[in-house]
Design a binder for these strands. Sequence first.
DNA 1: TCTTGACTCTCCCCTTGGGGCAGCCCTTAT
DNA 2: ATAAGGGCTGCCCCAAGGGGAGAGTCAAGA
Lengths: 268, 268
Amino acid sequence: MKFSIGEFSRITSLSIKSLRLYHEKEILIPSEIDEFTGYRYYNETNIECARTIKILKEYDFSLAEIKEIIDDCGEESEMMNMLIQKKEEIEKKIDHYKNVSLSIELIIQQEKEIKMKTENEFEIEEKEVETMLIAGYRMKGKYSEVGKAYGILGKTLGRHINGKAMNLYYDSEFKEEDADFEPCFPVRKGNSGDGISVRELKGGKCVSIIHKGPYDKLGDSYKKIFSYINEKNYKTEIPSREVYIKGPGMIFKGNPNNYLTEIQVFIK
Amino acid sequence: MKFSIGEFSRITSLSIKSLRLYHEKEILIPSEIDEFTGYRYYNETNIECARTIKILKEYDFSLAEIKEIIDDCGEESEMMNMLIQKKEEIEKKIDHYKNVSLSIELIIQQEKEIKMKTENEFEIEEKEVETMLIAGYRMKGKYSEVGKAYGILGKTLGRHINGKAMNLYYDSEFKEEDADFEPCFPVRKGNSGDGISVRELKGGKCVSIIHKGPYDKLGDSYKKIFSYINEKNYKTEIPSREVYIKGPGMIFKGNPNNYLTEIQVFIK
DNA sequence: TCTTGACTCTCCCCTTGGGGCAGCCCTTAT
DNA sequence: ATAAGGGCTGCCCCAAGGGGAGAGTCAAGA
């Protein structure tokens, strides 16, 4: 029984190109090669070998590895070390892909959340905010140093973060320098220490507006919100909050004109 | 601020080769290219872009996809469909790698088991075999048709298989044709039907020998085992068993001279 | 100012696992 | 005998760069 390359290709489900490549690499050598025409002919032993190659390819071995295995091994016991090593490689890949899958899922979920929140237009509204557990890093100085605080918080809290980044403002007036504020994240759990305070942040009634645009235009929205509060004669409570619904993304910095920040001023 | 390609490479942890490639593919175009020397210079905007590219690469996007994303998207919301699609791809890869990992683990475990079993030399021994749940496919005819039975059993039982393939012999004498035997597998659970019988197979005391070599030499080992039984004046019970400890492997057919088969003849 | 060593440029070849095509030869059936 | 369909080699292509050659450039120290 001998088969031409086309027949053998159909038998083994390996493309003719692949078969020629395997021949060239001396992985799967046809049992007979016509001296004059160069035609390749394969036999049953080749079929056995082709099966082995297919399985090893499925197991993610490279052709070089496969050649080594086929040349050196007659049965599985002789390739235990290769199998163990390959399994470790594969486990690493699984780990990596799982992490990536999680990261992507996170981005997708965040985007969904943003879409939901922005369905109600950007009007002033009064609403209840629930009490939540937060981890904050209180600081005095310039606003521009918040980045450092979020860095520390992010690194320390890792997977416990449970919501959008926020900033609490303890000043009753605007201060460019020497401001008193507390960058924080909602968390599932965590421990205080190293300047980080984990505690319950009381909810309550607040006046809220979603600010669309860059952070240096937040003043416009504050103006709107305080006009509303004065009109209604509400008394405000400290601290007020900014919730960063959408800022620079994981992947793109994005366009600051599309940033979304919710301002919450709590009332008595 | 402008950086030479070397500096930019150190800043972004992208190799110079990669940076030149990204330039050629118009994915990351240096902010300035010296007209006369061809030197590439990068600025802060390029850093931002490089960060995006690195993340997308980590997320397993190809350079072509990355180019498309960077050209078309300014922020994450615009690439939701790409992210969702990529996540599906990644989940598929995870599934595939998990299957491969399982298959490899199975082979490794089987090989370990074989090593353990063959530590005691191939001598006749008397031992207790425990009762086990099996799924068998009883047939009458030629031995050579067992392959079909194992095929059916393997397909039907799938993941429930819990041990080595066995064959039960119900004839008290050797029969070439019209033999009465039952290929079977130990299983964790399963349902009878379609010719398959799932039931408890009683254990007990047996005389056992491990036969090393091709199946057509099993007669030699049977001879040894029955000599021993006659010497001891034991009475045998039907069915006797063959346990296929090591035969053709998943990957290699292997050398039949190394096949291992345990013969168990039960005694009253 | 000159030199020298470190950078950078373009080009070319190599990798893996093939796909596709051109031009030619071979086989097989009618 | 002829036509159709295989099969052969050789060449170019892909991703995502790595390695190196040979030539040109830049910046700092003497």
